[in-house]
Design a binder for these strands. Structure first.
Lengths: 130, 130
DNA sequence: TTGATAAAAGTAACCATTACTGATAATGGT
DNA sequence: ACCATTATCAGTAATGGTTACTTTTATCAA
């Protein structure tokens, strides 16, 4: 993997954020520093860095992928109203009922994806008393 | 909501299955009975029925939506090798660590989506000793 | 039976993502 | 330092699932 200015800036902007931007959100940020960069370059580098384990790619609900510069194993909570995604510190524990269910289905369990859905602080306020 | 032959057949074919077809898989099935039905009609009716609470729409990983005629609250396990999706009986329990994390993030929790990932029985066999 | 209109078929548009096509530039060997 | 190799780039076209549009058909209350 060669060292390029584009990849450098993409990674810098991503790790600078504590949000979980989509590819085009990141593209808009990166373009402030590299106005001639193309969207394809952003996608390609996000893909390369994901496959190298440098960043996380989140396949949360919705049509777009999200990216996360934080490589630690953590969960996410998504606001169903505004789409915002935040980190969660919760450590998922596999319950007995879950282990039994996996066994019952005849599957070999590899991973468990948990996504919390709710209203973010800002949207709780806006939603008011509903 | 009017009663139409198309919607009837779509629902029949979906509830007949215990798998979790994508829209185009269902389209291929329905076409055997209604050869002139269009893909758009399948999408429209799946959407209508989902919004009416008649069926479930699963936004699991990958690019396609999956549909489920079983309206009961249950979890799913997806085979990472062949894409097959099966039901899981496990009842998700919210752990203390999870409740604390939600509170810490300032969110109002609405739901929790869990997806189990693994190898289905057929793929465990094929995968052999790996 | 009929008029209003929901829903159909067929087709075009949409949008995130991926693939392609020369041009450019990072890297390793001489 | 130079050159050859080739990863990567910018720009653009293609892909694929889904949605929207347009015209026609069919359901259903009056």
């Amino acid at each position: 993997m060669r060292k390029t200015r584009q990849r450098e800036v993409i990674r810098e902007e991503l790790t600078k954020l504590d949000s979980h931007p989509s590819a085009d959100e990141l593209y808009r940020l990166v373009r402030k520093r590299l106005p001639r960069i193309s969207l394809g370059t952003v996608y390609r580098n996000l893909d390369v860095m994901f496959r190298e384990g440098m960043i996380q790619r989140l396949d949360v609900g919705g049509s777009q992928m999200r990216f996360d510069g934080d490589r630690s194993d953590h969960q996410h909570i998504r606001c169903v109203r505004c789409g915002r995604i935040d980190d969660m510190e919760a450590l998922p524990e596999l319950t007995k009922s879950e282990r039994d269910a996996v066994k019952g289905a005849g599957y070999r369990l590899l991973a468990r994806r948990i996504e919390f859905l709710g209203l973010c602080p800002a949207c709780v306020k806006k939603a008011g008393r509903h």
